[in-house]
């Protein structure tokens, strides 16, 4: 029966397209969260496939911390122009100006946690009943427990101990007024699957994922880019290195990998050989053992 066999990437693709179509069918005002990172780029690619030749029947939503790499923003605007999709942007700076959140202080200050408030406000303002995210179960131990369709109460909170059972491919998106769903179409993809798929489908990526020379500094064993709003600690110094991003968050929490990989094939080789996890360079996960679970309960991505 090998005539009816598809490889693991095509099977994952079919599953994700199924999930995305389910969202479009079961919800009235879904959005797809878009960060400009590889996972959301792949997710958007899958959405285009799901509805072709029609346009994607929902908007994208980018929560801009104001601390993004310029390359990411340029890539986003480019992609929207090429595909004719619509990307809404909401700014953490606005939440700060409105006094809804207070900027963190100190040397490791980050706007990562503040994003949750901006995100929940945006979902409220846009009356979204579902938000798709590019989270993957292999990323982090709390994410390993996440459903495809993840129910959120009226406060946007996740209750990990009381999740709806999810069987076969039947997804239950029913909810009460004011509640919403987070949906993770690429739940079952690993970092390697994402890279292989990008290779197989020849998907264009922001230049940050490929090697480039950059002035960086080392903090707690992680190479970081120094943006103008960041401060060096005594003893930290800027050195020029060949680096690339393995994952892209905002500048304050994205560790850079020393690498000379300038094409997808070499990146796949690098991912295959690496002995640390993708989020090992993410300062936002290092805050405590349950940093991700705690943020997710509050309504984080």
């Amino acid at each position: 029966m090998d005539r009816y066999r598809i490889n693991h990437l095509r099977e994952l693709e079919a599953e994700s397209i199924f999930v995305i179509r389910e969202v479009a069918a079961q919800f009235e005002r879904p959005v797809m969260l878009f960060s400009g990172g590889k996972d959301s780029i792949v997710m958007f690619h899958l959405a285009r496939k799901a509805f072709y030749p029609a346009k994607v029947p929902f908007a994208l939503l980018h929560i801009d911390t104001g601390h993004n790499f310029q390359e990411t923003l340029d890539y986003r605007d480019d992609l929207m122009e090429k595909t004719g999709a619509k990307c809404l942007v909401r700014y953490v700076q606005d939440s700060i100006d409105q006094g809804k959140v207070v900027e963190e202080k100190g040397i490791n200050a980050s706007r990562n946690k503040l994003q949750t408030v901006t995100l929940l406000d945006a979902l409220d303002e846009l009356k979204c009943d579902a938000a798709m995210g590019g989270g993957r179960r292999d990323e982090e131990k709390a994410r390993a427990k996440e459903r495809f369709f993840s129910h959120r109460d009226e406060f946007g909170q996740w209750d990990p101990k009381n999740q709806r059972p999810e069987l076969w491919n039947i997804f239950n998106g029913r909810k009460n007024m004011g509640e919403h769903f987070r949906v993770f179409p690429i739940s079952n993809w690993t970092e390697m699957d994402v890279w292989q798929y990008i290779y197989m489908e020849n998907i264009e990526l922001p230049s940050l994922y490929f090697t480039h020379k950059r002035e960086v500094f080392n903090r707690d064993g992680v190479w970081m880019f120094k943006a103008p709003f960041m401060q060096l600690k005594p003893g930290e110094e800027l050195i020029e290195k060949d680096v690339r991003c393995r994952t892209i968050g905002d500048i304050t929490c994205t560790g850079l990998t020393l690498s000379k990989a300038d094409n997808i094939e070499d990146i796949i080789q690098e991912v295959a050989a690496t002995r640390t996890t993708e989020r090992g360079g993410r300062a936002d996960d290092k805050r405590s053992e349950s940093a991700m679970e705690d943020r997710k309960k509050e309504g984080y991505f």
């Binding site: 292999d138 131990k141 709390a142 390993a144 427990k145 079952n188 690993t190 390697m192 053992e289």
Partner: peptide, 30 residues
């Protein structure tokens, strides 16, 4: 490694399904 939730680690029990991934050159496993 498999008990991902804080409550599971505290109580030393598995409460919910956790998904794990690995691959060999032949197959990808969930």
């Amino acid at each position: 490694l498999t008990d991902g939730l804080k409550a599971e680690r505290e109580q030393g029990i598995t409460i919910d399904v956790a998904y794990r991934y690995f691959a060999t050159p032949k197959r990808k496993f969930i």
